[in-house]
Design a protein around this nucleic acid. Structure first.
Lengths: 338, 338
DNA sequence: CACTTGCCTGTGAGCGCTAACAATGTGCCC
DNA sequence: GGGCACATTGTTAGCGCTCACAGGCAAGTG
């Protein structure tokens, strides 16, 4: 910066003012400084700047498996929004979903001086641990559950599950089976609750949910079990007939579809299926999958807006701030005869 | 740090030595300092440290659409590897694939003082622009093409395409059609070249490749065109019969499968299909998709290793350094009668 | 004409840390 | 016992930047 000042024939402070868009700089001086900057290829040192301003303009993100469509889309929207606001995003991924792993990830981010973090880990243990940490900077969670005093941005999972389940019931099915996500995942829990609530309101029998782990393989296994029930159905084993299934995510739904097809069952003829997420592939499944679309990018943007508003207000407003985004039911061939 | 020093009854320099694991510190002093640190909840200021050491320990990543399975998996492996080496990763995503967008992304990273960057943008224009930028820090590309003087880490796309094509030919097909990715993508080009080379070596007719854009929808359209040819095939329009198709990625292959099925064609009975990537869903397509698996996580790890080795050697070794990872053919039902 | 006002610019201090050097204490050799 | 090597600690000087303040100059005011 001293070099630039010398070339431009001004003081380093004037160079600083030009770079910070300070108003009180004569136009001719400004252009002269900018010329010198261009000539020298100068870039302001961010560390020195951060040191004196006490602002790193960096936000941290803790993400769970970012290989999945949802988290990665959220991250995408989040990064874009942060960049527009002049912040940098540093992401850390979680290998295990333990409290220790979360703490380690947050420590790592703290070491680099992030001003705030977004936690995209809809996992009960992790979020609980998060609430217990008293961190010296603001935290926002995405899908972090509503029972903790941490601001959260989420899609209404409960409502989405209700939409899918109601849609299936409305098509005339007596009841709707459910392939659930792992119980430690908050989203899985909310979806299961939504599903159950609709059945109870309708006075329908609530079949035992089948446990999956989000992967297509687990969906496949669940599908095999369901197929077995359909085939053995006439024999009557106390459980209600399987004619409709709400699967907690699209990947598992893919596995279910395959298992049913292998068992010779037609979808939606014999069994209607609905998923959750609306991954790009869902429209091209066999048959195209009825599912619940989540606006992941909006989730990311909202989380950044919330985080930055706390950062810049400086205040620590209500810790129970909530942003809820509505999901949308996308009806396709897996639930309606084509 | 001064506070810690006072509490521990030492100088700030000793505190610094403890934090840097300097050898010459008496054990009793070290524990005393650590105790003070714990008591005060002190954290070393990364900006001040970066300012004086001239090391930010931050790496930048420029990624194209990280919603896709490949890039996001690479990013995942990359971040993990970087963290193990004590670096932080800051990622920026590209909205458009222009030279200007790339420059903007890199500027953004530079402003935050990254020590080096990994560019995961297998796009011709972007990579060419990258080669022309003379950046003051090391750059490594993932799938950045081998024709430029930039170190690159990649899966051998050409070989992967050859594997898939050879596999289809070996099954007895006269020739193999190809649904290609956008020509501006280096991976699309390499896969098309590999496909073509096998056909030429085998003396097979090379059908005109059909252009897609990586999306399931474009695959679906390509599939409709192919289905049309099969049905009209007997009429003979100069083009060879469609009995096998190598699709440049799994998402498009999904679209192709659906279009063929809608046209009443059986896979692999009438048309055999192979894809590329091995996304988690591929195994559960109808039928399960034969595809070429890429080890994306290894790609990310290798890119970090390469980048850090340049960083720490300080030297600027051969700019044509290359790491090539072998792909693997995964044979499933879409290419072989079950 | 002195005085204020507003604009523009320069000066000096210091953000929190590490590198280099200086200073102390401790043990060992001749 | 003097001197040397070594381990341990303290002192000082910046790293490159922004903030607070001071100063200079032109224009307007009483």
């Amino acid at each position: 910066m001293a070099d630039v000042a010398q070339v431009a024939g001004v003081s380093h402070q004037t160079v600083s003012r030009v770079l910070s868009n300070h108003p009180n700089v004569r136009e001719s001086t400004r252009t002269e400084v900018l010329r010198a900057i261009g000539q020298l290829g100068y870039r302001r040192n961010s560390s020195a700047r951060a040191l004196v301003t006490r602002r790193t303009l960096t936000l941290g993100v803790v993400a769970c498996n970012p290989t999945l469509f949802g988290p990665s889309s959220t991250l995408f929207g989040l990064e874009e929004a942060a960049r527009d606001e002049g912040y940098m995003v540093s992401a850390v991924t979680l290998r295990r979903y333990s409290a220790a792993a979360l703490r380690e990830a947050i420590d790592h981010l703290s070491d680099w001086g992030v001003e705030g973090i977004v936690v995209i880990v809809p996992h009960r243990e992790a979020v609980t641990a998060l609430a217990e940490l008293r961190l010296p900077f603001p935290v926002v969670t995405v899908e972090g559950g509503h029972s903790l005093p941490i601001p959260v941005v989420s899609v209404d999972q409960w409502l989405g599950a209700r939409m899918a389940t109601s849609h299936l019931l409305a098509a005339g099915h007596r009841t709707v089976w459910h392939v659930a996500g792992p119980p430690s995942w908050l989203e899985a829990e909310a979806r299961a609750k939504g599903w159950r609530s609709v059945l109870e309101e309708a006075g329908a029998v609530v079949p035992p949910p089948i446990q999956g782990d989000w992967t297509p393989l687990s969906g496949y296994r669940a599908g095999q079990e369901l197929a077995g029930r359909v085939t053995a159905g006439a024999a009557g084993r106390g459980s209600p007939e399987v004619t409709a299934v709400f699967v907690a995510n699209d990947q598992m739904a893919l596995g279910v579809l395959r298992a049913l097809r292998e068992a010779g069952l037609s979808v939606p003829g014999q069994v209607a299926i609905a998923g959750f997420d609306d991954i790009p592939e869902a429209e091209f499944f066999t048959p195209p999958l009825t599912t619940v679309r989540q606006d992941f990018a909006a989730l990311g943007q909202a989380s950044i807006r919330l985080l930055i508003s706390r950062l810049e207000s400086g205040t620590r407003p209500d810790d129970d701030e909530r942003v809820v985004i509505e999901p949308r039911l996308i009806v396709r061939g897996s639930s309606t005869p084509s």
